[in-house]
Design a protein around this nucleic acid. Structure first.
Lengths: 356, 356
DNA sequence: GCCGATCTGAGGTACGCACCTCAAAAATGC
DNA sequence: GCATTTTTGAGGTGCGTACCTCAGATCGGC
């Protein structure tokens, strides 16, 4: 049998109350006694039973996730992954609530964040562009003792407690190597598309991409980034224009968003399968395009891991416990048609228990 | 507050004992009453609190992991990952014990497996070649009510309960595309190395590799597999011989093991960085070789995920609970120098609790 | 309408821990 | 050595569930 608090008390020659004070870092215990208890713990190899501890504490981890209300497949998949992770975690006293805010309205976002402290949340996960207003709102939350983690896109200057997502610069480098290698090092030109050159993740991807292209593939020319501002019409127009005027374009790097429109345009121009197309995020549409050969490679992150990591990190932060960094690191995945993972079956709500 | 069994009892107009019987599928409850209880559960949105349940049950998940005693870096990394996952899971009443068996001795393995039922194990994870003796031993375990999962290399004919690892055929295909693309489609020859052509995973990787090479890269010729039998000397000899006689070799696909020797030989021959080298498993040595440019790409699986998945699957099997298949699927990861994840810091044993 | 068989209810104990109170003991200041 | 403060002990309650016992209710068959 594994040792319990009572064993510790006996072994250390103190009472259960004292062991409890030591274990939970409550005041009123002499240094000497603390040491005696810790020695006993070490000697017996005691491991605290967290399930029992949480049960006794009667604690429920209520956590808020705040996402923009964009209709993009990526956000939608992310929301699904989070919801599913939340429902699976329900058996371990964890509750996840999703909040959406108007994508282009920082004030609405700030207002939403302002209401959170009153709702008994133990932590907040947030995906949003880093505006000054947001920074203040995040600081406010943290001042209220609510840990904040940034999701997908980092918020370094807002003082978030943790960032959950990939290293976008490395992701850009990865896209660069694949593009360069797949094109045999050149010669040729590469089109680069991005929603907005102001978003932090886009900037970093572009920087990483250029790094590799310049260093390793001087024979290839990466053209200036084209901004699409999330508008299909704009995307359609700039791509058509560029491809018509630049016969040397052999590859396209889509740094974010608009993949559906992009593949459509390429199809219309009869270019599907003739260019090396690399994009981000394995959404259902991208998956199909990959299988059909319209997209060559995808740089992506596992949204399931991201969602579960979010819950784990927020719980750890709420408990002031250290993280298993290696588990929380989100990998930069390279997906080709050949290593395409099975599509996640969105599970029907189940009555059955799940081991967390 | 979330509803408890007591709330269910009140809502259904029955006693707590009856609710308990329904929840745990114990006999002695009329159909009608069962339905009443289930209705109440649905109405209140009751979710069983597994932590409390396990606590009350006083259950400890004791799990055995059986690995060959090979000294390879892969097995070693795997053992480390398992140990770490086990120590992190200790707070949730889970105990993992590692057993090793002489790699080339199926009888010793069978004998070891035979002793397991007496040791109060709730499940066994096993990495071993599928011999007839092993098949019988596995059947014996399962006849004793102990679930068995295959690790890394599948045991389909032994009737394992689950396989935890990558789809090796798809992994071979992935290696194939990268090889083909990186070599610009040819012309040229590709060397293929494997420990033993009898091991199931090697066969499948080769099959997948050939599939892609033949279909998509007819300009490239994949040479016959060279067997190394895990012997550095053999590997050294065959590689030297082949490379000396085949000037058209532009790539090497190492299907498993011996990566350390391989990079050494290439170094000695002055070929490092001149060939496209693709191997499996991101061990510390392979990581260094990747950074140094001696290896081009690695097809790997995340051993941390694999270890955690092992524990989750065994617990679920022991509880006769369904799995979250999408979470348990081990991905085929492609690692280049550019998307190399941070090395896992092997954590010092910590006194602090971890949320599971 | 009686009998045995089958269901159901009430209540208890236990799991390992958190957290509370009150009083007793020990250490400390003067 | 006394008063004061600090440390410690003993004990209790509750978290949500499992599992056990025993008595009472209901059912089916005849």
């Amino acid at each position: 049998m594994r040792p319990t608090v009572n064993d510790i008390a006996r072994e250390a020659g103190v009472s259960l109350a004292t062991v409890d004070r030591v274990l939970n870092a409550r005041p009123g215990v002499r240094e000497k006694t603390v040491k005696a208890v810790n020695d006993a713990i070490a000697r017996l190899g005691y491991v605290r039973d967290l399930t029992a501890a949480n049960l006794a504490r009667g604690r429920t981890y209520r956590v808020a996730v705040v996402l923009p209300d964009t209709e993009s497949q990526f956000i939608q998949s992310l929301a699904e992954a989070l919801t599913e992770a939340g429902s699976l975690a329900a058996t371990s006293r964890t509750e996840l609530r999703l909040h959406r805010f108007p994508a282009e309205d920082p004030h609405a976002l700030a207002a939403l964040l302002g209401t959170l402290p009153g709702r008994d949340y133990l932590g907040v996960a947030l995906m949003a562009p880093e505006t000054p207003i947001l920074r203040d709102a995040v600081r406010q939350l943290r001042a209220n003792g609510i840990p904040v983690v940034a999701l997908v896109s980092d918020l370094p200057n807002a003082g978030r407690d943790h960032f959950i997502g990939i290293d976008n610069r490395a992701a850009g480098r990865t896209a660069g190597v694949i593009m360069g290698r797949f094109l045999g090092g050149g010669p040729g030109q590469v089109l680069v598309l991005g929603q907005s050159l102001l978003a932090r993740d886009m900037i970093e991807r572009r920087r990483g991409f250029d790094e590799v292209m310049q260093r390793d593939f001087p024979g290839l020319e990466a053209l200036q980034s084209l901004e699409t501002h999330g508008s299909p019409a704009t995307l359609r127009q700039v791509v058509r224009e560029m491809l018509a005027n630049a016969p040397d374009v052999r590859g396209i790097y889509a740094m974010g968003g608009g993949n559906r429109t992009l593949t459509q345009v390429l199809d219309e121009m009869g270019l599907s399968g003739k260019l090396t197309v690399i994009c981000h995020e394995l959404t259902p549409h991208v998956r199909a395009a990959l299988i059909a050969g319209r997209i060559t490679a995808v740089i992506t992150q596992n949204l399931g891991h991201l969602a579960r990591s979010t819950l784990r990190v927020l719980r750890a932060k709420a408990d002031h416990q250290p993280l298993d960094e290696s588990q929380e690191q989100i990998r930069i995945e390279i997906v080709l048609r050949e290593n395409l993972p099975e599509p996640p079956v969105s599970q029907p709500p189940t009555e059955v228990d799940q081991v967390a």
